[in-house]
Each structure stands twice: as C-alpha cells, then as structure tokens.
C-alpha cells in the first residue's frame, strides 16, 4: 500500500506543481492595458503565432488490458517484518486484467511535426485471482477495487494534420507499475494485507486520431500496445488544450 501511495504522489506531483507556477506568474500587478505602459505582458502575447507556445495539456480516460501471466510478481505481506515472496504470473490463475482510469499529458512541439512530452496515468480494477499458492505463504483474494496500474512515460511522436483531424504516431517510453492487493497468512498464522507488484519498463507505440473541437481544443481516440508485453493493449479517449491554434498547421 505504501508503494501505491508513493506512486500516486509521484503521479499527482505535476498537477500540484502547475497551479503553483501559474500563481507565481500571476503575482505581477498590471499597471495599464496600454502597450508601453504594460509591465506584465508584451504586445502580441495573447494572440500572436510567434508568442504562443506550442504546448498541449491533456486529460483522458484510459482502459488497459494486461496479461498477468507474462509478468513475474513480487509479493509483500504485512508492514512490520514483512514477508516477501515471488510469484510467477501463471500462479494468479487469470488470463487478463482489465482496468479503467485517468491519464494526463503535457507535451510540446519541437518543430512543425515532432512533439515531446510526458504522460502519466493511473487506473483501477477489480480482479479475482485464483492463486496457485507459493511455498512461503498462503494468499487469498481481497475483494473490491484491488488492482492499481500506474504509468509514467516520456512521449515522442509525430503529427500529420488532416484539416479537422490529425493523425498521430507516438511512442511512450517509461515505467509501469501493476499492483494487486491481497490478503496473506504469515508463517505465524496471522492474516495481513499485502500486495503483488510488478514494475516493468514500458515501450508503448500508439496510434491516435484527434478531432479539433475548436482552434485550441481536441478530442482524441487512441490505441496502443506494449513492446515488452505484446498481448497487452490500451486505449482511451482524451481531451486537450493547445497553446497554439491547430498546433500551427491545419493542413
């Protein structure tokens, strides 16, 4: 659970930091709305192509399909003197895990086509594993929302403008954490809460199609796979705010 909280904190950090930066910027007190007398902004800051930043901020809904058998899981039971063990993926007795969650993105164009960014997300699920018991401990399923899947990745991609649509091809390079909450009996007979965790590299190619809902807003559908776990899939719908109209190119 501690790892989960830590992962959530890392994921939430940029959300906390952004408003603070914005607040710091707004500490400038404008003296006038007339060019030359203004102190906080320059001529053209709010409307010019040259002085806009090709940044994109996005938030979306995601759904992932993971194959637990392809992963090796490390287990922990209890907080004081935790019992640690390893579990092969097949021991979860599940063909797949599906989750639903949110993802967030900040990216920027380095030229008219290529963009770089950072993407982070967290998804939750409810799984019902039928464990093949490890030798060290006895574990059982914990009911409710018992699966957390978090990703943090850098993004590199290219965009092809197609008028009201854009086609994008991109790759996410980073880390993903999958965690299943379980209950387990320690050697002393005590039942405690624990988790099965898998930390893995992420190399996820994605295909995305944007629809411009306004000059600075898009709705996107995307789908992707995972090079390291070829049976994994993910898809989502996201909504983004763009700093430059049509990202600088409509066609």
């Amino acid at each position: 659970m501690k790892r989960l909280v830590l992962a959530l904190l890392v994921l939430a950090l940029p959300l906390v930091a952004l408003p603070r930066q914005a607040h710091a910027h707004s500490s400038c007190h404008e003296q006038s709305d007339i060019t030359g007398d203004r102190v906080c902004s320059r001529f053209g800051d709010l409307w010019s192509h040259e002085r806009s930043f090709p940044l994109t901020l996005g938030v979306g809904l995601t759904s992932s399909h993971l194959v637990p058998a392809a992963r090796n899981w490390s287990g922990t039971l209890g907080k004081d003197n935790p019992v640690r063990f390893r579990l092969p993926g097949q021991a979860l007795g599940m063909r797949s895990i599906d989750d639903v969650g949110f993802d967030f993105r900040m990216s920027g164009y380095v030229n008219r086509t290529l963009y770089l960014g950072i993407d982070w997300g967290v998804a939750l699920g409810s799984v019902h594993p039928t464990f093949a018991q490890p030798a060290e401990v006895e574990i059982r399923n914990k009911s409710g929302i018992n699966f957390v899947h978090a990703k943090i990745a850098s993004v590199i991609g290219a965009r092809l403008p197609l008028g009201p649509f854009s086609a994008r091809l991109e790759a996410l390079i980073g880390l993903q954490i999958a965690s299943v909450t379980v209950e387990g009996r320690k050697p002393n007979g005590e039942w405690v809460q624990g988790s099965l965790n898998n930390l893995a590299f992420l190399l996820e190619p994605r295909v995305a199609v944007d629809l411009w809902t306004g000059p600075w807003t898009t709705m996107t559908v995307w789908g992707g796979g995972n090079v390291f776990f070829p049976a994994d899939r993910s898809m989502g719908v996201s909504f983004a705010l763009h700093g430059r109209a049509f990202d600088g190119r409509y066609f």
Binding site: I34, T35, D37, G44, H49, R51, F246
Partner: peptide
C-alpha cells in the same frame, strides 16, 4: 507615431482563428 518605449510593436502574425486587442499611444 506610436509610442513604443520597449520596441515591441512590430510585424507579428495573428494565430489561426485568433482574436486580439491592442491599445497603443
């Protein structure tokens, strides 16, 4: 003439579909 002490008024491009307002002396 335009009073432009910071030499900031020059040729720029209005972003696609954008609107703006500027006040100059």
């Amino acid at each position: 003439s335009i009073v432009d002490p910071r030499a900031e008024v020059h040729l720029l491009h209005v972003d696609a579909a954008a609107r703006g307002i500027e006040k100059v002396r």
